[in-house]
């Protein structure tokens, strides 16, 4: 509010300036100016505050909405096991874990049920499937909590998501959309730099559905625009059929294609015939 100091460097000498400041009419006008400035500020604040209270949505003024019971239980689990990396309000922690706002309960259920979360070593190329730390129910509670925090994709209810799926249609969709990474045999394949598409052998219907819906780690998201819910059910039906189907040609060699076949022809075929040559020809 005062301009005097700014003039100091280029203005008249210091003694002269002090003399001027001490003069009584100047002091009175300075006081008045300060009082008016204060009043102006209070008025401006009152107007802005008034406008804000008039126009701001009323709900924001209230406390955060009540979580459902499941979500409350989920929050308790979340605060214990997830908050270290994903932050106390799932907003994420720089360098440790991403925000979970908007990932949906499908992602939470997938990650927790397959044991990928909590991750022991998130720095490695890919977080691997392991023994889950939580029960399915607990996973769903955590899912409910994250869902109520920020929304996102959700799984349909029920454990049997292959029902009504067309195996043949699913096979065609699988070969076009999934086989390039998970291989025709559904048992996985390599990606770049130590990453890989895992085997679908231990995967349940719900996990398959959730994986397509949320695209965990390196997997692309197959939203309902890319693969309709019915098509997802077709694919699940195909994958689960393929896993149960016996190999009609004998020992399936893990269905890895020509690589183990090449091993077998040398280790089984060639070696057994070589023993026969030793037997029938002698070593002279």
């Amino acid at each position: 509010m005062t301009f005097d100091d700014s003039a100091g460097a280029a203005g008249p000498p210091r003694e002269a300036r002090r003399g001027r400041l001490l003069a009584s009419p100047v002091r009175r006008s300075r006081l008045r100016r300060r009082v008016f400035a204060g009043l102006r500020l209070v008025t401006a604040l009152a107007i802005v505050g008034g406008i804000y209270t008039a126009f701001a949505p009323g709900s924001q003024a209230e406390d955060t909405p009540k979580l459902t019971e499941a979500a409350q239980l989920g929050k308790r689990l979340y605060d214990q096991s997830c908050a270290t990396c994903h932050g106390p309000n799932a907003q994420g922690v720089q360098g440790r874990g991403p925000s979970l706002i908007g990932v949906g309960s499908a992602a939470v259920e997938f990650q927790v049920e397959t044991g990928r979360m909590p991750a022991a070593r998130p720095q490695q190329a890919q977080v691997e499937r392991k023994q889950p730390m939580f029960t399915t129910e607990q996973a769903q509670q955590m899912g409910a909590y994250v869902q109520e925090l920020g929304g996102g994709p959700q799984l349909p209810s029920g454990d049997n998501l292959r029902e009504g799926g067309d195996v043949a249609k699913g096979g065609e969709l699988f070969r076009v959309n999934c086989a390039s990474c998970h291989a025709f045999s559904t048992n996985g394949g390599a990606l770049s730099s130590g990453k890989f598409a895992p085997s679908l052998e231990p995967t349940t219907d719900r996990q398959l559905y959730a994986a397509m819906l949320t695209g965990p780690q390196n997997m692309p998201v197959f939203g309902d625009n890319q693969l309709t819910p019915q098509e997802k059910r077709d694919i699940i039906a195909y994958v689960q059929f393929q896993k149960q189907d016996k190999d009609p040609g004998g020992f399936g060699l893990g269905r890895y294609g020509p690589v183990p076949e090449g091993l077998v022809i040398f280790l089984v075929g060639m070696v057994s015939i070589l023993f026969v040559t030793l037997w029938i020809a002698g070593k002279s």
Binding site: G189, P248, G249, E261
Partner: peptide, 25 residues
Amino acid sequence: FQINPVWLFGPYKAAVVSAASQPDW
């Protein structure tokens, strides 16, 4: 020993390239 299970691979479509596509040894 099962070899070349063609039924698993499905019919050839230009868009279909599976992981672990290898020739014979």
